[in-house]
Design a protein around this nucleic acid. Structure first.
Lengths: 223, 223
DNA sequence: GCCTGATTTTACATTTCTTTAACAGTTTCC
DNA sequence: GGAAACTGTTAAAGAAATGTAAAATCAGGC
């Protein structure tokens, strides 16, 4: 069902987790330290990581920060398994970017149930090639945009802008951020150009164009 | 930052959770049974539900099945809070569609951390870096401010002022310090302008605006 | 080179925010 | 207690940012 990477230095625990997770129908690769885990990540591209915090060498929380900062692996969900059960350890783990925290000893059945819960969440996030917001749908691979099911014609820049907005709903972008992202870091363009494209985009979107809001003195967002 | 619905029949626990969740900057509505919760759902449309399993009348797990089957509410994440800590209860809760399961007694800090993790996962929006003080929460990356979880509209200067205050609670700023920081070192502005913005900011914050205190002959602070 | 459509710039109307100014209310200190 | 100094609030003037149409420029195909 899913590819899972297990980082755990206790051999006995690694074996029992591997056995149970495999029996539940997943593919699992186990490793005893975080440095090896980093190597494996690249090729294995797991759907989920089970991570012990107390590891020899690179610590689990350092490993977690590393992958969270990485564009390619940053979205992979992580369940921490740890003997540390103090409130502050749990909070620190969750704040560092873990999706769940299990304290040792833990029940295999609970672990398997949590794996399913987290996989369900992270999968429902990419429902195919369409990204949509409200009445607006964007098909990135085919470079098409739709309003209420009707395709509308957009130019390149308009499309890139709309895609960025729909991918990051509610996020506010400054004009310079938009220029850097859509036009490129070295674009030599007046910031009012952005306004101009926003204007044409709104017009082409019709009613639905109202979701593009201006944030005074900052920039724009979709909401 | 988020709207949360709490379904819990023990009044003492309901109060303490309400207090803590509110202080973290969320809006929370509490109810003592699942039938009332169903009514509230429609109007309140929470971002997250905290659900006790053992309830008088409609049971928590039945309530969970009902909303999971509903198109409109089916996607709302649910954290179960329960005195049942047996392995099979936890697994059953997770399989019924809960996103997490906390056993009583639980730590408020852990609850708050889990709320943020789950919100982050369910919104495509990065909840950003929230800084909060009392009922006020400020999201710098998205340029948003919240009072008791409700977003309020602030102008640029008001936002910059509030951000500075919330970042440095209890610190007293002179008017000139505020001018230097918010307006810039070379601002050619009358110091009374600060008072004017403080006034509008207080008004927009409503009740919570009282945390901005004037320090006679010096300036302002948040406390 | 010319044409077409996309992109950028410009200009002006409009909207929104910021500052000032005036006055009311409050505090401080003699 | 009362004057002086300070703060709160409001409204209006002023400044700045945005919306948009249209003109200018650019890029690629023919």
């Amino acid at each position: 069902m899913a590819k899972i990477l297990l980082v755990e230095d206790e051999e006995a625990l690694r074996e029992i987790v591997t056995f149970n997770v495999q029996n539940a129908g997943h593919t699992i690769v186990g490793t005893e330290n975080a440095n090896d885990a980093l190597m494996i990540l690249e090729d294995f591209l797991p759907d989920l990581i089970l991570l012990d915090i107390m590891l020899p060498g690179l610590k689990g929380d350092q490993f977690l920060s590393l992958i969270r900062a990485n564009n390619k692996f940053g979205q992979i969900p992580v369940i921490i398994i740890s003997a540390k059960s103090r409130e502050e350890d749990i909070v620190a783990g969750l704040e560092a970017g873990a999706d769940d925290y299990l304290t040792k000893p833990f029940s295999m059945k609970v672990l398997l149930a949590k794996i399913l819960v987290i996989l369900k969440r992270s999968r429902s996030e990419d429902p195919g090639d369409f990204i949509s917001y409200d009445q607006i749908a964007v098909d990135e691979t085919n470079h098409k945009a739709f309003v209420a099911g009707q395709e509308i014609a957009l130019t390149n820049k308009e499309f890139a802008l709309l895609l960025l907005f729909v991918r990051n709903p509610r996020r506010v972008f400054t004009r310079n951020q938009l220029l850097n992202t859509v036009w490129g870091y070295d674009a030599d363009v007046y910031t009012r150009t952005v306004d101009s494209h926003i204007s044409t985009l709104r017009k082409k979107l019709g009613e639905a164009g109202q979701v593009i809001r201006s944030i005074a003195k900052i920039g724009y967002k979709v909401e």
